[in-house]
Nucleic acid binder design. Structure first.
Lengths: 209, 209
DNA sequence: TAGATTGTTAATCGATTAACAATC
DNA sequence: TAGATTGTTAATCGATTAACAATC
Protein backbone atom coordinates (compact mmCIF):
# COMPACT_ATOMS: atom_id res chain seq x y z
CA UNK A 1 0.00 0.00 0.00
CA UNK A 2 1.35 3.39 -0.98
CA UNK A 3 1.79 5.72 1.97
CA UNK A 4 0.00 8.39 -0.01
CA UNK A 5 -3.20 6.34 0.14
CA UNK A 6 -3.29 6.15 3.92
CA UNK A 7 -6.24 8.17 5.24
CA UNK A 8 -5.39 11.26 7.28
CA UNK A 9 -7.44 9.89 10.18
CA UNK A 10 -5.15 6.87 10.41
CA UNK A 11 -2.01 9.00 10.37
CA UNK A 12 -3.38 11.18 13.15
CA UNK A 13 -3.82 8.07 15.29
CA UNK A 14 -0.31 6.73 14.63
CA UNK A 15 1.47 8.84 17.29
CA UNK A 16 -1.09 7.73 19.83
CA UNK A 17 -0.40 4.07 19.06
CA UNK A 18 3.26 4.89 19.43
CA UNK A 19 2.67 6.43 22.85
CA UNK A 20 0.70 3.44 24.14
CA UNK A 21 3.21 0.96 22.78
CA UNK A 22 5.98 2.93 24.49
CA UNK A 23 4.14 2.56 27.78
CA UNK A 24 3.67 -1.17 27.22
CA UNK A 25 7.36 -1.46 26.47
CA UNK A 26 8.20 0.28 29.75
CA UNK A 27 5.92 -2.16 31.54
CA UNK A 28 7.84 -4.98 29.94
CA UNK A 29 4.90 -6.31 27.93
CA UNK A 30 6.17 -8.50 25.09
CA UNK A 31 3.06 -9.17 23.09
CA UNK A 32 -0.42 -7.67 22.86
CA UNK A 33 -3.58 -8.53 20.94
CA UNK A 34 -5.61 -5.92 19.14
CA UNK A 35 -8.33 -6.65 21.64
CA UNK A 36 -6.25 -5.95 24.73
CA UNK A 37 -4.83 -2.80 23.15
CA UNK A 38 -8.31 -1.66 22.16
CA UNK A 39 -9.42 -1.81 25.80
CA UNK A 40 -6.48 0.30 26.93
CA UNK A 41 -6.87 2.87 24.20
CA UNK A 42 -10.66 2.90 24.21
CA UNK A 43 -11.01 2.24 20.49
CA UNK A 44 -12.30 -0.84 18.66
CA UNK A 45 -9.96 -3.70 17.93
CA UNK A 46 -11.21 -3.59 14.34
CA UNK A 47 -9.89 -0.09 13.99
CA UNK A 48 -6.49 -1.06 15.31
CA UNK A 49 -6.17 -3.97 12.88
CA UNK A 50 -7.43 -1.89 9.97
CA UNK A 51 -5.13 1.00 10.80
CA UNK A 52 -1.99 -1.09 11.14
CA UNK A 53 -2.73 -3.04 8.00
CA UNK A 54 -2.44 0.12 5.94
CA UNK A 55 1.28 -0.30 6.45
CA UNK A 56 1.55 -4.07 6.12
CA UNK A 57 1.05 -7.03 8.38
CA UNK A 58 2.80 -6.30 11.65
CA UNK A 59 0.92 -8.96 13.57
CA UNK A 60 0.76 -12.70 13.62
CA UNK A 61 -2.37 -14.83 13.67
CA UNK A 62 -3.01 -16.55 16.94
CA UNK A 63 -0.31 -14.51 18.68
CA UNK A 64 -1.07 -10.82 18.31
CA UNK A 65 1.53 -8.09 17.97
CA UNK A 66 5.09 -8.19 19.23
CA UNK A 67 5.37 -4.93 21.15
CA UNK A 68 9.05 -4.07 20.54
CA UNK A 69 8.74 -4.81 16.82
CA UNK A 70 5.53 -2.83 16.36
CA UNK A 71 6.97 0.06 18.37
CA UNK A 72 10.02 0.18 16.14
CA UNK A 73 7.96 -0.11 12.96
CA UNK A 74 5.74 2.81 13.92
CA UNK A 75 8.79 4.86 14.93
CA UNK A 76 10.17 4.25 11.47
CA UNK A 77 6.90 5.25 9.82
CA UNK A 78 6.91 8.48 11.83
CA UNK A 79 10.50 9.22 10.84
CA UNK A 80 11.71 8.91 14.42
CA UNK A 81 14.60 6.69 13.37
CA UNK A 82 16.56 9.65 12.10
CA UNK A 83 17.55 13.13 13.28
CA UNK A 84 15.70 16.26 12.14
CA UNK A 85 17.31 19.65 12.57
CA UNK A 86 14.88 22.28 13.67
CA UNK A 87 15.02 26.04 14.18
CA UNK A 88 12.60 28.10 16.23
CA UNK A 89 11.44 31.45 14.88
CA UNK A 90 10.38 33.72 17.71
CA UNK A 91 12.09 33.59 21.11
CA UNK A 92 9.05 34.77 23.06
CA UNK A 93 7.45 32.71 25.78
CA UNK A 94 6.12 30.07 23.44
CA UNK A 95 9.24 29.84 21.29
CA UNK A 96 11.40 29.41 24.36
CA UNK A 97 9.02 26.85 25.81
CA UNK A 98 9.19 24.76 22.64
CA UNK A 99 12.95 25.18 22.29
CA UNK A 100 13.40 24.16 25.90
CA UNK A 101 11.38 21.02 25.65
CA UNK A 102 13.97 18.28 25.98
CA UNK A 103 11.62 15.48 24.97
CA UNK A 104 11.71 16.55 21.33
CA UNK A 105 15.45 16.02 21.32
CA UNK A 106 14.95 12.50 22.66
CA UNK A 107 12.85 11.69 19.59
CA UNK A 108 15.45 13.06 17.21
CA UNK A 109 14.12 16.58 16.81
CA UNK A 110 17.26 18.61 17.29
CA UNK A 111 16.82 22.33 17.94
CA UNK A 112 19.86 24.18 16.64
CA UNK A 113 18.93 27.87 16.73
CA UNK A 114 16.42 30.48 17.84
CA UNK A 115 15.59 33.63 15.86
CA UNK A 116 14.07 36.84 17.18
CA UNK A 117 13.62 40.43 16.13
CA UNK A 118 14.36 41.72 19.63
CA UNK A 119 18.02 42.86 19.60
CA UNK A 120 18.29 42.31 23.35
CA UNK A 121 17.85 38.58 22.89
CA UNK A 122 20.16 38.24 19.90
CA UNK A 123 23.60 36.81 20.51
CA UNK A 124 22.61 35.29 23.80
CA UNK A 125 21.85 31.73 24.76
CA UNK A 126 18.32 32.17 26.08
CA UNK A 127 17.35 28.52 26.21
CA UNK A 128 19.76 25.76 27.22
CA UNK A 129 22.82 26.20 24.98
CA UNK A 130 20.84 27.32 21.95
CA UNK A 131 21.95 30.62 20.49
CA UNK A 132 19.49 33.31 19.41
CA UNK A 133 20.07 34.99 16.04
CA UNK A 134 18.57 38.06 14.42
CA UNK A 135 15.61 37.55 12.08
CA UNK A 136 17.69 38.90 9.20
CA UNK A 137 20.11 36.02 9.62
CA UNK A 138 17.62 33.27 8.73
CA UNK A 139 18.87 33.05 5.14
CA UNK A 140 22.54 32.96 6.07
CA UNK A 141 21.91 30.39 8.74
CA UNK A 142 20.04 28.16 6.35
CA UNK A 143 22.83 28.49 3.78
CA UNK A 144 25.41 27.30 6.27
CA UNK A 145 23.44 24.76 8.29
CA UNK A 146 21.15 21.91 7.48
CA UNK A 147 17.64 22.78 8.61
CA UNK A 148 14.59 20.66 7.85
CA UNK A 149 11.91 22.03 10.16
CA UNK A 150 11.06 25.56 11.25
CA UNK A 151 8.87 26.23 14.25
CA UNK A 152 6.91 29.41 13.65
CA UNK A 153 6.19 31.00 17.02
CA UNK A 154 5.65 34.62 16.05
CA UNK A 155 2.49 36.76 15.84
CA UNK A 156 0.35 36.26 12.76
CA UNK A 157 1.24 39.63 11.27
CA UNK A 158 4.80 38.59 10.47
CA UNK A 159 4.07 34.95 9.77
CA UNK A 160 3.31 34.93 6.02
CA UNK A 161 6.46 36.90 5.17
CA UNK A 162 8.74 34.74 7.30
CA UNK A 163 7.10 31.59 5.97
CA UNK A 164 7.84 32.72 2.44
CA UNK A 165 11.48 33.36 3.28
CA UNK A 166 11.78 29.92 4.84
CA UNK A 167 10.20 28.28 1.81
CA UNK A 168 12.48 30.22 -0.56
CA UNK A 169 15.43 28.79 1.31
CA UNK A 170 14.08 25.27 0.93
CA UNK A 171 12.61 24.51 4.32
CA UNK A 172 10.91 21.13 4.28
CA UNK A 173 8.32 21.65 6.98
CA UNK A 174 6.80 24.38 9.12
CA UNK A 175 5.31 23.72 12.52
CA UNK A 176 2.97 26.67 12.62
CA UNK A 177 1.94 28.21 15.95
CA UNK A 178 1.05 31.58 14.46
CA UNK A 179 -2.67 32.19 14.35
CA UNK A 180 -3.02 32.17 10.62
CA UNK A 181 -3.13 29.72 7.72
CA UNK A 182 0.00 29.68 5.63
CA UNK A 183 0.21 29.48 1.88
CA UNK A 184 3.25 27.42 0.95
CA UNK A 185 4.57 25.84 -2.25
CA UNK A 186 3.71 22.23 -2.97
CA UNK A 187 6.05 19.86 -1.19
CA UNK A 188 6.41 21.98 1.93
CA UNK A 189 4.66 20.41 4.87
CA UNK A 190 2.67 22.59 7.27
CA UNK A 191 1.35 21.34 10.58
CA UNK A 192 -0.82 23.87 12.37
CA UNK A 193 -1.20 24.19 16.11
CA UNK A 194 -3.84 26.83 16.62
CA UNK A 195 -3.97 27.08 20.39
CA UNK A 196 -6.76 29.62 20.63
CA UNK A 197 -8.92 27.46 18.38
CA UNK A 198 -8.28 24.52 20.64
CA UNK A 199 -9.35 26.62 23.61
CA UNK A 200 -12.52 27.69 21.81
CA UNK A 201 -13.36 24.06 21.11
CA UNK A 202 -13.03 23.37 24.81
CA UNK A 203 -15.22 26.38 25.52
CA UNK A 204 -17.89 25.12 23.12
CA UNK A 205 -17.91 21.74 24.81
CA UNK A 206 -18.36 23.43 28.20
CA UNK A 207 -21.41 25.28 26.96
CA UNK A 208 -22.84 21.98 25.86
CA UNK A 209 -22.17 20.08 29.06
CA UNK B 1 -31.22 21.21 16.25
CA UNK B 2 -29.84 20.10 19.56
CA UNK B 3 -26.22 21.09 20.07
CA UNK B 4 -25.50 17.54 21.14
CA UNK B 5 -26.26 16.32 17.64
CA UNK B 6 -23.71 18.55 15.93
CA UNK B 7 -20.90 16.41 14.52
CA UNK B 8 -17.48 16.85 16.08
CA UNK B 9 -16.04 17.72 12.67
CA UNK B 10 -18.34 20.73 12.44
CA UNK B 11 -17.42 21.97 15.91
CA UNK B 12 -13.73 21.70 15.08
CA UNK B 13 -14.29 23.99 12.10
CA UNK B 14 -16.25 26.59 14.05
CA UNK B 15 -13.24 28.48 15.47
CA UNK B 16 -11.78 28.66 11.99
CA UNK B 17 -14.97 30.26 10.65
CA UNK B 18 -14.74 32.65 13.56
CA UNK B 19 -11.18 33.58 12.66
CA UNK B 20 -11.99 34.26 9.02
CA UNK B 21 -15.09 36.26 9.90
CA UNK B 22 -12.98 38.33 12.29
CA UNK B 23 -10.62 39.11 9.44
CA UNK B 24 -13.50 40.08 7.17
CA UNK B 25 -14.84 42.31 9.92
CA UNK B 26 -11.46 44.05 10.20
CA UNK B 27 -11.50 44.56 6.45
CA UNK B 28 -14.90 46.19 6.81
CA UNK B 29 -16.74 43.54 4.78
CA UNK B 30 -20.47 43.71 5.56
CA UNK B 31 -21.82 40.68 3.76
CA UNK B 32 -20.36 37.50 2.28
CA UNK B 33 -21.80 34.59 0.33
CA UNK B 34 -20.93 31.01 1.14
CA UNK B 35 -19.23 30.90 -2.23
CA UNK B 36 -16.90 33.84 -1.57
CA UNK B 37 -16.09 32.54 1.87
CA UNK B 38 -15.42 29.08 0.49
CA UNK B 39 -12.78 30.51 -1.84
CA UNK B 40 -11.01 32.29 1.01
CA UNK B 41 -11.10 29.32 3.32
CA UNK B 42 -10.45 26.70 0.66
CA UNK B 43 -13.44 24.57 1.53
CA UNK B 44 -16.65 23.93 -0.43
CA UNK B 45 -19.53 26.35 -0.15
CA UNK B 46 -21.77 23.34 0.48
CA UNK B 47 -19.82 22.55 3.58
CA UNK B 48 -20.13 26.09 4.89
CA UNK B 49 -23.89 26.13 4.40
CA UNK B 50 -24.30 22.67 5.90
CA UNK B 51 -22.10 23.50 8.87
CA UNK B 52 -23.83 26.75 9.73
CA UNK B 53 -27.26 25.23 9.34
CA UNK B 54 -26.58 22.89 12.19
CA UNK B 55 -27.13 25.92 14.40
CA UNK B 56 -30.01 27.55 12.53
CA UNK B 57 -30.37 29.78 9.54
CA UNK B 58 -27.86 32.57 9.89
CA UNK B 59 -28.03 33.58 6.23
CA UNK B 60 -30.58 35.11 3.92
CA UNK B 61 -31.46 33.89 0.46
CA UNK B 62 -30.26 36.11 -2.32
CA UNK B 63 -28.07 38.08 0.06
CA UNK B 64 -25.65 35.76 1.81
CA UNK B 65 -24.44 36.17 5.38
CA UNK B 66 -24.21 39.40 7.33
CA UNK B 67 -20.64 39.33 8.64
CA UNK B 68 -21.11 41.14 11.98
CA UNK B 69 -24.17 39.06 12.83
CA UNK B 70 -22.61 35.75 11.91
CA UNK B 71 -19.43 36.66 13.78
CA UNK B 72 -21.42 37.41 16.91
CA UNK B 73 -23.52 34.25 16.57
CA UNK B 74 -20.46 32.03 16.32
CA UNK B 75 -18.85 33.84 19.26
CA UNK B 76 -21.96 33.04 21.28
CA UNK B 77 -21.88 29.38 20.21
CA UNK B 78 -18.24 29.18 21.29
CA UNK B 79 -19.04 30.76 24.63
CA UNK B 80 -16.92 33.82 23.89
CA UNK B 81 -19.68 36.14 25.05
CA UNK B 82 -18.86 35.47 28.67
CA UNK B 83 -15.82 35.34 30.91
CA UNK B 84 -14.16 32.07 31.92
CA UNK B 85 -11.78 31.97 34.84
CA UNK B 86 -8.77 29.81 34.22
CA UNK B 87 -5.86 28.59 36.31
CA UNK B 88 -2.59 27.23 34.99
CA UNK B 89 -1.05 24.21 36.67
CA UNK B 90 2.69 24.14 36.09
CA UNK B 91 4.71 27.37 35.86
CA UNK B 92 7.40 25.91 33.62
CA UNK B 93 8.18 27.29 30.20
CA UNK B 94 4.93 26.14 28.66
CA UNK B 95 2.73 27.14 31.57
CA UNK B 96 4.24 30.61 31.63
CA UNK B 97 3.90 30.92 27.87
CA UNK B 98 0.21 30.06 28.04
CA UNK B 99 -0.40 32.28 31.08
CA UNK B 100 1.37 35.13 29.35
CA UNK B 101 -0.61 34.92 26.17
CA UNK B 102 -2.71 38.09 26.27
CA UNK B 103 -4.94 37.07 23.38
CA UNK B 104 -6.79 34.55 25.53
CA UNK B 105 -7.79 37.35 27.87
CA UNK B 106 -9.18 39.30 24.93
CA UNK B 107 -11.56 36.41 24.22
CA UNK B 108 -12.72 36.26 27.82
CA UNK B 109 -10.37 33.57 29.11
CA UNK B 110 -9.16 35.15 32.30
CA UNK B 111 -6.07 33.62 33.90
CA UNK B 112 -6.22 34.15 37.64
CA UNK B 113 -3.47 31.98 39.10
CA UNK B 114 -0.46 29.78 38.43
CA UNK B 115 0.46 26.72 40.47
CA UNK B 116 3.84 25.05 40.73
CA UNK B 117 5.66 22.58 42.92
CA UNK B 118 8.90 24.57 42.80
CA UNK B 119 9.05 26.59 46.07
CA UNK B 120 11.26 29.20 44.43
CA UNK B 121 8.43 30.24 42.12
CA UNK B 122 5.70 30.21 44.75
CA UNK B 123 4.55 33.56 46.11
CA UNK B 124 6.04 35.44 43.17
CA UNK B 125 4.35 36.99 40.18
CA UNK B 126 6.18 35.17 37.43
CA UNK B 127 3.93 36.16 34.55
CA UNK B 128 2.34 39.59 34.26
CA UNK B 129 0.55 40.20 37.56
CA UNK B 130 -0.48 36.57 38.04
CA UNK B 131 0.58 35.06 41.33
CA UNK B 132 2.07 31.59 41.61
CA UNK B 133 0.77 29.30 44.33
CA UNK B 134 1.99 26.00 45.72
CA UNK B 135 0.50 22.81 44.28
CA UNK B 136 -0.95 21.96 47.69
CA UNK B 137 -3.04 25.13 47.56
CA UNK B 138 -5.16 24.09 44.56
CA UNK B 139 -8.05 22.94 46.74
CA UNK B 140 -8.05 26.04 48.92
CA UNK B 141 -7.83 28.29 45.89
CA UNK B 142 -10.76 26.55 44.24
CA UNK B 143 -12.79 26.82 47.43
CA UNK B 144 -12.31 30.56 47.54
CA UNK B 145 -12.31 31.48 43.85
CA UNK B 146 -14.47 30.66 40.92
CA UNK B 147 -12.48 28.54 38.50
CA UNK B 148 -13.95 26.91 35.42
CA UNK B 149 -10.93 25.82 33.39
CA UNK B 150 -7.58 24.37 34.42
CA UNK B 151 -4.64 24.31 32.06
CA UNK B 152 -2.56 21.24 32.75
CA UNK B 153 1.03 22.04 31.84
CA UNK B 154 2.93 19.54 33.95
CA UNK B 155 4.79 16.33 33.05
CA UNK B 156 2.65 13.28 32.49
CA UNK B 157 3.78 11.55 35.70
CA UNK B 158 1.89 13.99 37.90
CA UNK B 159 -0.99 14.66 35.54
CA UNK B 160 -3.52 11.94 36.50
CA UNK B 161 -3.29 12.76 40.21
CA UNK B 162 -3.66 16.52 39.72
CA UNK B 163 -6.50 15.97 37.25
CA UNK B 164 -8.32 13.91 39.85
CA UNK B 165 -7.90 16.63 42.46
CA UNK B 166 -9.22 19.23 40.04
CA UNK B 167 -12.22 17.07 39.19
CA UNK B 168 -12.93 16.42 42.86
CA UNK B 169 -13.09 20.17 43.37
CA UNK B 170 -15.57 20.53 40.53
CA UNK B 171 -13.46 21.82 37.68
CA UNK B 172 -15.53 22.08 34.51
CA UNK B 173 -12.83 21.67 31.90
CA UNK B 174 -9.18 20.68 31.58
CA UNK B 175 -6.99 21.93 28.76
CA UNK B 176 -4.49 19.12 28.81
CA UNK B 177 -0.92 19.70 27.62
CA UNK B 178 0.51 16.77 29.56
CA UNK B 179 1.47 13.87 27.35
CA UNK B 180 -1.12 11.46 28.59
CA UNK B 181 -4.82 10.75 28.24
CA UNK B 182 -6.87 11.70 31.28
CA UNK B 183 -9.69 9.73 32.81
CA UNK B 184 -12.26 12.18 34.12
CA UNK B 185 -15.83 11.88 35.41
CA UNK B 186 -18.70 12.42 33.00
CA UNK B 187 -19.44 16.10 32.55
CA UNK B 188 -15.84 17.25 32.80
CA UNK B 189 -14.56 18.44 29.44
CA UNK B 190 -11.04 17.53 28.34
CA UNK B 191 -9.34 19.09 25.36
CA UNK B 192 -5.97 17.56 24.59
CA UNK B 193 -3.04 19.35 23.01
CA UNK B 194 -0.43 16.69 22.48
CA UNK B 195 2.44 18.69 21.04
CA UNK B 196 4.81 15.83 20.45
CA UNK B 197 2.11 13.95 18.57
CA UNK B 198 1.57 16.98 16.39
CA UNK B 199 5.29 17.07 15.67
CA UNK B 200 5.28 13.38 14.79
CA UNK B 201 2.44 13.95 12.35
CA UNK B 202 4.53 16.63 10.70
CA UNK B 203 7.46 14.25 10.62
CA UNK B 204 5.34 11.54 8.98
CA UNK B 205 4.21 13.97 6.29
CA UNK B 206 7.84 14.90 5.61
CA UNK B 207 8.76 11.28 5.05
CA UNK B 208 5.96 11.05 2.54
CA UNK B 209 6.81 14.21 0.58
C1' DT C 1 -40.01 41.06 -10.94
C1' DA C 2 -35.58 38.70 -11.89
C1' DG C 3 -31.37 37.32 -10.00
C1' DA C 4 -28.88 35.64 -6.36
C1' DT C 5 -28.07 32.73 -2.81
C1' DT C 6 -29.61 30.23 0.99
C1' DG C 7 -31.56 26.02 3.30
C1' DT C 8 -32.27 21.37 2.56
C1' DT C 9 -32.75 16.97 0.29
C1' DA C 10 -30.45 13.45 -2.37
C1' DA C 11 -26.19 11.29 -4.05
C1' DT C 12 -21.61 10.24 -3.28
C1' DC C 13 -17.74 9.31 -0.93
C1' DG C 14 -14.97 7.73 2.90
C1' DA C 15 -14.28 5.85 7.42
C1' DT C 16 -15.62 2.71 11.00
C1' DT C 17 -17.36 -1.54 12.61
C1' DA C 18 -18.67 -6.35 12.11
C1' DA C 19 -17.81 -10.81 10.53
C1' DC C 20 -15.15 -14.57 9.31
C1' DA C 21 -11.86 -17.23 6.57
C1' DA C 22 -6.89 -17.72 6.70
C1' DT C 23 -3.17 -19.12 9.42
C1' DC C 24 0.09 -19.15 13.10
C1' DT D 1 -4.03 -30.49 16.47
C1' DA D 2 -7.13 -26.93 18.59
C1' DG D 3 -7.42 -22.32 19.95
C1' DA D 4 -6.40 -17.75 19.25
C1' DT D 5 -6.03 -13.87 16.68
C1' DT D 6 -4.85 -11.64 12.61
C1' DG D 7 -5.77 -9.83 7.85
C1' DT D 8 -9.36 -8.74 4.95
C1' DT D 9 -13.89 -8.53 2.94
C1' DA D 10 -18.60 -6.95 3.57
C1' DA D 11 -21.98 -4.07 6.00
C1' DT D 12 -22.92 -0.01 8.31
C1' DC D 13 -22.52 4.43 9.54
C1' DG D 14 -21.39 9.25 9.01
C1' DA D 15 -19.62 13.15 6.57
C1' DT D 16 -19.05 15.68 2.36
C1' DT D 17 -20.55 17.26 -2.00
C1' DA D 18 -24.01 18.15 -5.51
C1' DA D 19 -28.34 19.71 -6.86
C1' DC D 20 -32.25 22.42 -6.66
C1' DA D 21 -36.54 24.24 -4.76
C1' DA D 22 -37.59 27.97 -1.59
C1' DT D 23 -37.26 32.71 -0.86
C1' DC D 24 -35.28 37.14 -0.08
Amino acid sequence: MDRRDVPQAVITRLPRYYRYLGELLEEGVERISSNELSERMKVTSSQIRQDLNHFGGFGQQGYGYHVPTLYAEIARLLGLDRVHNMIVIGAGNLGRALAGYANFEKRGFNITALFDKNPELVGKKNVRDIETYAMEDIEEYMDTHEVEIAVLAIPKTGAPEVAKRLCDKGIKAIWNFSHTDLDVPKGVVVENVHLSESLMKLSYAMEEA
